[in-house]
Design a protein around this nucleic acid. Structure first.
Lengths: 256, 256
DNA sequence: TAGTGGTCTAGACCACCAA
DNA sequence: TGGTGGTCTAGACCACTAG
């Protein structure tokens, strides 16, 4: 065969579509602007709606679009940087930035958490629920697991419940003097309860941040926080790597 | 109508399916085991293949499954923890763990990177490509941007190319003495070139880690690393939050 | 070459929101 | 109530891998 099959990998339609749409977003749309609806867009590009949706899903995953049922698809603002490390912030100290205490109750933690805490399986701990709000938008839901041993001043089984109880646990934890932490980040999908708090649908992509708080070398508490992956950029370190987005990974590097 | 419509939110099929499959994975399958094919599974559960795929996609996103075209769907091992912060590791110093230098070349960085570096737009910098391998599997692809000003010992326009050149840049950067860093993590999707390095399809979910290296208060270099989101758990801090996975977020908390 | 997952279509109906 | 995105179906064909 004389036809030297050149390396023409047929690019999937949705991939090409995504590229075209991304360029259009950069040049022809303003943040918050509402796009034509999916049926309209699909027709305009001559593809099935499912294919169009595949492209939109990717763009939403990358934080470029926001879709809401019954409303429409809008151009998303750049991701907000939320500080999750080093800086004195997740700690107690009243009114620390943008955490909102929800409530507290004793319960048996998942086995993996108990392992991290070094508590007996089946042993109940204080579970404090908090949500984090930035710019009026909910960005994270957190469960903070505090073994009774870490807050001896509080009655183990009969701690005050609700927001006051939660604040009491946090205050006690602060008195303890935390001297270190340890974090891990991984991708997950929102459970039903988390989704509701984050104003997303179940299954939405989230960044799960697991933090271990230390005091005198021992694990004093464990926090599992789930951040909206579409709207958040997690920052570690003091200065906070302000401003920068998907653009850092754009083309234009044009290697020589 | 006497039927008081109780708050029965009809759970989507794919969601329920995902739950069922997740339980089956925990109880009936071993890591690496291969699942029945999609058509078979769809038939077995009495759903369309697309619906079944929606469930599989979520499980893959959560790192529970691994799917490979032409091969099949297998049960994924737990995510590997990869250290990305604090510890002296991304830095030069020969043979530092699991980074593999690919090459180096001068090129004009994306505008957002130039802004971080504080270089003129259009000014070329050294771009070092590295990949990170853990347990024989590629986990990350990195582009390290180093302005000529940070490595004055190297010829700006005519630096050695290829792996030797890359190592030269890294060595010079090490001599400089970095005294701080600054990181951000966000969700992205793999570009075509990254996908190839990571042995995934384009569009695969990745965790993008942007690191700013400081020396004497100035930004000496910027690294943009993309980690496979399906197989990696990024760890920050010294001890590394060993061992723990999706389990930390499982049910069983059973609030009181 | 047979079997896998990946892409794509053209429909349908449903849940949600705003007017 | 009309319009939006979300779910679901039952097909088809393609790209890739392995034997």
């Amino acid at each position: 065969m004389g036809t030297t099959q050149l390396d023409t990998v047929p690019e999937p339609k949705y991939w090409h579509l995504k590229t075209v749409l991304a360029e259009a977003l950069d040049s022809e749309f303003a943040v918050g602007e509402i796009l034509p609806n999916e049926r309209e867009l699909a027709a305009r590009f001559g593809v099935a709606r499912a294919t169009l949706r595949q492209a939109l899903e990717q763009l939403e995953l990358e934080g470029r679009l926001q879709r809401r049922r019954g409303v429409g698809t809008t151009v998303a603002p750049p991701r907000v940087g939320v500080s999750v490390g080093s800086v004195q912030q997740g700690r107690p100290g009243a009114t620390d930035g943008d955490w909102e205490v929800a409530d507290s109750a004793p319960a048996v933690p998942p086995a993996a958490v108990a392992r991290l805490l070094g508590t007996e399986a089946g042993e109940p701990v204080h579970i404090v629920r908090r949500s984090r709000v930035t710019g009026g938008q909910p960005v994270a839901a957190e469960l903070l697991y505090v073994p009774p041993a870490s807050v001896p001043a509080l009655p183990a089984a009969d701690a005050p419940a609700g927001p006051p109880g939660a604040r009491a646990v946090l205050a006690e934890l602060g008195n303890l003097g935390l001297d270190g932490e340890d974090q891990a980040v991984e991708l997950g999908s929102a459970r039903a309860d988390e989704a509701k708090q984050l104003d997303r649908l179940p299954g939405a992509p989230v960044l799960v941040v697991t933090t271990r708080y230390f005091t005198r070398g021992r694990t004093a508490a464990v926090a599992v926080a789930t951040y909206r992956a579409d709207t958040c950029r997690l920052t570690f370190g003091d200065s906070g790597t302000v401003e920068l987005a998907h653009e850092t990974r754009d083309a234009g590097a044009s290697r020589v």
